[in-house]
Design a protein around this nucleic acid. Structure first.
Lengths: 346, 346
DNA sequence: CTGAAAGCGCTTACAG
DNA sequence: CTGAAAGCGCTTACAG
C-alpha cells in the first residue's frame, strides 16, 4: 500500500540508493548485472518514481495549464482535444480551467496555475478581459505563454490565430458575389478582438464594393449559452427593422442556426429571400436544412499548433535561450453550402 | 526571475526558516509583529510556496485525473464542466485525458496518472474496455476511483450513473402510449453497459405491452464521430427493410437528428408517419425541426456529483478510514417535444 | 515566542 | 563500476 522507494530497493539488494537510481535511468556507468537486478526487483515491487521528488529536483512538472472561456462549445472542445493529444505525445499533461468569460475568474485561475508551478500556460482570453497585467505576470515569472483564438495583441507572447478580418471579408464578399445588395451583420460582443476584426472585415468588404455601411444593420450577440436564442431574436428584429435586407453575415454558426430556424418559422426563404453566411463550420452546419455556408475555422489544428509552439519555447528555455514570440496564422476557407445562392456570372 | 524561497525571506529578516514557514501559515505560536514582517516581505517579493516541495512533504498534489472517451461531445463536455467547477471550489485541479474509446490508450493513461501521483481518479470507460485489471490497479494503489456514465459493474468502486434501462423503458413506453405499434431501436455498440441497458429497457417495454420483440428492428450505431451519418443511414435502411415501422427509439440525440434529417429528405412525416424518441437532451434537440422528444440526461450534474463523491473519499482516506463504495443514481426524465404525437386518451 | 534538526524521495557532481 | 554526500524547498515534532 505504501509506495516503494529507491531506498527500499537499495536495502534489499544491499547496494546504494545512488546505484539504484542510476540503474533505473540506464546510466552507462552501472554494470549490466546490477542493472538487471535492480530492474527486476523494481518491476516485481511495482516501483513508481515519486514524481513530487523528481519535480523538486528537476524543477519541472511536465504539466501545463490551459484556460479556456467555455468548455461546452464545439470549437473550444476541438481545440482542447488538439492540445491534449499533442501534449500527451510529448509527455506533458494538461490541467484545464474554465474562465466562464470572466476576467476575475481568469485572473484567479492564472494565479492558481502559477502557484501550482506548471511549466507553461496556454490561454484563450475571456470576453471580459481588458486589463492584461495578469498575463504579463506569467512572462515576468519566466514561464512560456501562448495565446490562441482570443488573444490580447499588446501582450508580447506567441499567438496562434486566424485572420478574422480576412475571413469575414471573404464571407461578406461571397454574399455580394451571389447578388446580395443589403447585407446585415450579427456581430459578437464589443470587447474581444475577433468579434471586432470580423466586424471590420465585414465593413471593409462593403466599402470595397461601394456599398454604403449602415450601422443600423449591425446587431450584437453575447454569444454565450443563449447563442441559438439570440440568433432567433435578431432574425426577427432584422425583418421588422429592415424589410430590404437580403443577406446576413453572422458571427458564429450557432447564432446562424438560430436565425435560420426563426426564418423558416416565419416563412422567409433561404437563400432566395435572405442569404446567410456563418462562421466556424460547426458540424451541425452541414446537418441543418438548408445546410449552412460558413467559414471553416480549424479548432483541432489550432490546439495542436498552440501546444507545439509552447513545447518549442519550453525547450528554448531549458537551453537558457531567449524566447522570441511568434505569431502563427492558420488558414481559413469559405465552405459553400445552401444558405447562399450560386455565384453570379458576369 | 528565480523563485523566492523561505530561506531568502528568513535571511533578509534574520530569523529562522521555521518561523517564516509558521508565520506564513498563521501558526498561533508566532508573534504578531513577526507575522506582519514576514507577510509584508513575502508580498513584496511575490513569494509563492514551491508546490513540489509541499507535495513531497504532504504527499498529496491536490490534483485529480480525469479520463473520458471523447471530449468533443456535448454530454461529456458538460460532465467535464461540472467536474472542474466543483473541483476548483474545493481547491483541486483536474488533469484531463481522452481515451478515444480505446482500451489500450485508457490503460496507458491510467498508468500515466498513477505515476503522476494524482490524488484520485475519475473515469468514464472506453467502449473497447472489457478487461478491468488496470482499474483494479488504482484501488490496489490505495487511490480513490469514481466511475461515471460508462462504468464497469464488477469493479468495486463508487459510481455515478443513470438508470439507462428505466429511461429506455420510459422512452419506449412513450412511443407505445402515443400509438406506435411497430417500434425499431437504433442501439449503440455491443460492449458498453449503457447501450446494453438501453436495449434491454426497450425490449422490456415491448414485452410488458405484449408487443413481439423482433431483432431485425434493432440497428447498431458505433456512435463515434459519424453518429449523424449513421442516423441518416439507418433511417434509410429502416424504410427499406420495414415499411411498417411507425416509431423508433434512438440511442443518442445526435443519431436521432441524423435520422430526422434523412426522413425529412425522403418525405417521411414526423411524427405522423414515424415517431422518434432520442436520448441525452442535447440542446440541438430543441433547435431542430421538428423538435426532438428525448430523455434528459443530466451531464453537468453527473460531473458535479462524481467529483463530490471523489472528494468525500479523499477526506475519508485522510482520516485513515476505509472507503465504502457508493452507487449514486441520477434521475432522468422524458422531455416531450414534436417528434412524438400527443398521448392517446383511453 | 523562536529555532535547530530531521526528513519527504529523488538526482547528480564528485571521489575512489 | 560503486557510493557518500549535498541539496531541491518545504513542514513539523521537539527543545528551550
Amino acid at each position: 500500500m505504501k509506495p516503494v522507494t529507491l531506498k527500499q530497493i537499495a536495502e534489499i539488494l544491499d547496494i546504494s540508493v545512488t546505484t539504484v537510481s542510476k540503474a533505473l535511468k540506464d546510466y552507462p556507468d552501472v554494470s549490466k548485472k546490477t542493472k538487471g537486478l535492480v530492474r527486476d526487483l523494481a518491476q516485481t515491487l511495482n516501483y513508481k518514481p515519486n514524481e513530487f521528488a523528481v519535480n523538486l529536483r528537476t524543477k519541472e512538472s511536465k504539466t501545463i495549464g490551459l484556460i479556456i472561456p467555455e468548455i461546452v462549445h464545439h470549437f473550444f472542445s476541438s481545440v482542447i482535444k488538439g492540445i491534449i493529444n499533442q501534449a500527451e505525445k510529448k509527455g506533458y499533461l494538461v490541467i484545464i480551467l474554465q474562465s466562464n468569460e470572466s476576467y476575475d475568474l481568469e485572473k484567479k485561475q492564472l494565479k492558481l496555475l502559477l502557484n501550482k508551478r506548471v511549466d507553461g500556460i496556454l490561454i484563450s482570453i475571456a470576453n471580459g478581459t481588458a486589463d492584461f497585467n495578469h498575463l504579463e505576470e506569467v512572462l515576468r515569472d519566466g514561464k512560456p505563454l501562448v495565446m490562441f483564438d482570443k488573444i490580447a495583441k499588446v501582450v508580447n507572447c506567441s499567438k496562434v490565430i486566424i485572420d478574422d478580418r480576412k475571413a469575414a471579408y471573404n464571407a461578406t464578399q461571397h454574399l455580394i458575389d451571389t447578388g446580395c445588395k443589403r447585407i446585415a451583420h450579427f456581430r459578437g460582443p464589443l470587447l474581444p478582438q475577433n468579434s471586432i476584426d470580423r466586424f471590420l472585415g465585414y465593413k471593409k468588404a462593403l466599402l470595397d464594393n461601394n456599398i454604403e455601411y449602415d450601422s443600423s444593420l449591425v446587431y450584437i450577440c453575447e454569444c454565450g449559452d443563449k447563442s441559438f436564442e439570440e440568433g432567433k431574436l435578431n432574425a426577427k428584429k432584422v425583418l421588422e427593422d429592415h424589410s430590404d435586407v437580403d443577406g446576413i453575415f453572422i458571427n458564429t454558426d450557432m447564432v446562424a442556426i438560430g436565425a435560420i430556424t426563426a426564418f423558416k418559422d416565419l416563412g422567409v426563404k433561404i437563400p432566395e429571400d435572405i442569404s446567410i453566411v456563418g462562421f466556424s463550420n460547426w458540424f451541425m452546419s452541414s446537418a441543418i436544412t438548408p445546410t449552412l455556408t460558413t467559414i471553416n475555422q480549424p479548432g483541432y489544428e489550432m490546439g495542436k499548433k498552440a501546444f507545439k509552439q509552447l513545447y518549442k519555447e519550453l525547450k528554448t528555455l531549458k537551453k537558457e535561450k531567449h524566447i522570441i514570440p511568434k505569431i502563427i496564422e492558420l488558414e481559413t476557407n469559405l465552405v459553400e453550402r445552401n444558405t447562399t445562392k450560386p455565384i453570379l456570372k458576369n
